[in-house]
Design a protein around this nucleic acid. Structure first.
Lengths: 361, 361
DNA sequence: TTCCTCAATGAGACCGGTCTCTTTCAGATT
DNA sequence: AATCTGAAAGAGACCGGTCTCATTGAGGAA
């Protein structure tokens, strides 16, 4: 059933029927009624594709995130979806699995599908030609959670630097000296050397804060405590096990996301470690479970839903023609102190602890 | 940059250029090379919209779920997305917020956008005209997690009846007699009367199992223990509070999803209830946090990711022309016994317990 | 040599909308 | 009465692909 069919049934021209059905131009009430009833009788449904093709607008925004299963992203996506729906936009969601190749493919298809704009949480900020391509195609782009300095586009992130600096300082004040920052981010050599190795904007900001707090407290080789590659439950577990079994295990761990924190928590419990006596744990992202464990986990609450909302608002603003300079919106975080952080154990006890570790329950 | 532009630059006809770019028909190697290099030079990007319009296929599947933030759905969506990507399909995701109006609107737009097929987790199975519309439009539909008897379409669910019957029986065997099934599903009167009141397929199956186990054990008025309307944290909390403050509070609660279980767990702890001594708790869905609480929560593990995968496979099979009769795939669940279930408290102790409840910590 | 086949290419219709450009004509203006 | 104005409707181009059908010519069969 097309406009032409309806027009024929209503005894008017295709152009007139299109005016009624498309809601533009001027039509007399009599004709309008005739067309509408013909449309109803024929069960006419507009073809959004054809409409998009001529108008150039699809009413759709494309979203590329690392992992929908990560509650961080699902919450952000929910924020995006809610704002989009209210503004009359649809969302095409794609999952990159944090793989740059998948991300590139996703961006390519979304542009080919002529989405009106994109929200991307880039897997790495060194490889961004495909993001530049978006700009070239004339579509607005908003970065989600991860800023990329060299791109002049809108970005919405949490204040990762400040948050991580503050929480590191907190741990230092509690007497911790061996504090590990554990992230899914990775380098070819799987070792952290310099900040530039970190290809994820948010992680780089956090590690910068981490290093700064460490340097100010005079802790040497803080960089050696940045541990990479905790992507997926298995690898996270392996990383955590390595940490716990080291000659000098960390007394505190900052987990870069709630999935990592969960695995660390789980393994620590399995190994018989008591929080916070044997290990202090902090988690980036106030995932729902962090408040119900024993002890509950100290978290940095990021306004995730709002990050998504803000990104969507920014994008839709651009689509409506707002021509402001690109903005990097930084949202404040809240440190929520719970029971998983305590004073560092006295060094003398570490021997006993290691024994227990070698014979896990 | 269009096919015509590339054709002109390469000195061939539009049809030939289209053949090269679209990968169909036969073209000589010499011409192919010329067209491809012209396309590269002009930075040609195909317009998927135009392609879809003529072919009638969009390479996109539409997904409508109740709530992306619910880990149950994000996991299922991940399954769908992974299978879709491998098969070369995109996913348009929409969130109904469990509201039938939003669901209808979503279906309408997806059909208008000419998605090739849909995967829907219907908010209620009484109001399904819009689902019938999908069939009428000639697109395959697969129901996710919630079957609708009156629709002759594919559906993928867990074995909810069996699972709930088994877990109810387990609780009964532990001596529980006041067992509450708490769900987000609701009725106009907010009270459970008959199975037909429940408009969500999965919940109805579970409650049927719940009632059967109760009836077999000779428990009267099992229907009175079905509690509705636990949608969102606040309402769940309110419902749970009502339960705990009743003259005869339940000794066991079966939570219909992990969000509900989390709120119940949280409130129970706040009120000073000890699990499983004062309350046994079972949760539908093996959410990640359920294994790290103290005690960990007994769950019914549903193969959620596989439910999503299977739904996507079924849909893509139909798109590829498989004409089998509609199948209702029922996947097995696993009861994972953890520490949150224990024997029912002796009735004599209930007085003491009520006192504690009236003066919560 | 003549006829046939088939690969390679071109011309142009088509998908289902939007939108510009015209034409028509009722009512207001002078 | 003649002219002007603008609302209402129609005709047809256009968006950017796909695809059918027609045309050409090289190589094989008879």
């Amino acid at each position: 059933m097309t406009v032409a069919d309806v027009a024929r049934a209503a005894g008017v021209s295709k152009a007139t029927a299109a005016r009624v059905l498309g809601g533009y131009g001027t039509v007399s009430d009599r004709v309008r009624a005739a067309v509408l009833s013909a449309a109803k009788a024929l069960d006419y449904r507009p073809n959004e594709l054809a409409r998009s093709m001529t108008t150039g607008r699809s009413g759709t925004i494309g979203v590329v995130v690392g992992d929908i299963e990560n509650p961080f992203f699902s919450s952000a996506v929910r924020g995006i979806a809610d704002v989009a729906r209210l503004a009359g936009f649809n969302v095409i969601l794609t999952n990159s699995g944090e793989e740059i190749a998948a991300e590139k493919a996703a961006v390519k298809t979304l542009v080919a599908k002529r989405v009106d704009g994109l929200i991307v949480s880039p897997a790495r900020d060194s490889d961004i030609e495909h993001l530049r391509d978006i700009e070239r195609s004339g579509r607005p782009l908003v970065l989600l959670d991860r800023a990329v300095e060299s791109l002049r586009v809108d970005a919405v992130t949490a204040d990762d630097f400040q948050a991580c600096e503050a929480v590191t300082r907190l741990l230092i004040d509690e007497g911790h000296r061996r504090i590990v920052y554990l992230t899914a981010c990775d380098t070819p050599g799987h070792r952290f050397e310099t900040l530039d190795d970190l290809y994820t904007g948010s992680v780089r900001a956090r590690v910068a804060g981490f290093l700064k707090a460490g340097a100010e407290a005079g802790i040497e080789a803080m960089g050696g405590f940045v541990k990479l590659g905790a992507l997926g439950a298995e690898r996270t577990r392996a990383q955590a096990r390595d940490l716990f079994e080291a000659a000098l295990p960390p007394t505190a761990i900052i987990a870069s996301d709630s999935l990592i924190a969960l695995e660390v928590f789980r393994l620590a419990r399995e190994l018989g470690l008591q929080l916070p006596r044997d290990l202090s744990l902090v988690c980036f992202h106030d995932a729902d479970w962090t408040s119900v464990t024993s002890p509950p986990v100290t978290v940095i609450r990021q306004p995730v839903y709002r990050i998504g909302e803000t990104a969507a608002r920014l994008l839709i603003g651009r689509l409506k023609g707002e021509g402001n300079a690109p903005a990097h919106v930084v949202l404040d975080t809240t440190l929520i102190a719970r029971g998983s952080v305590g004073p560092a154990p006295a060094e003398g006890r570490s021997g006993a602890r290691e024994t227990r570790l070698r014979h896990p329950v």
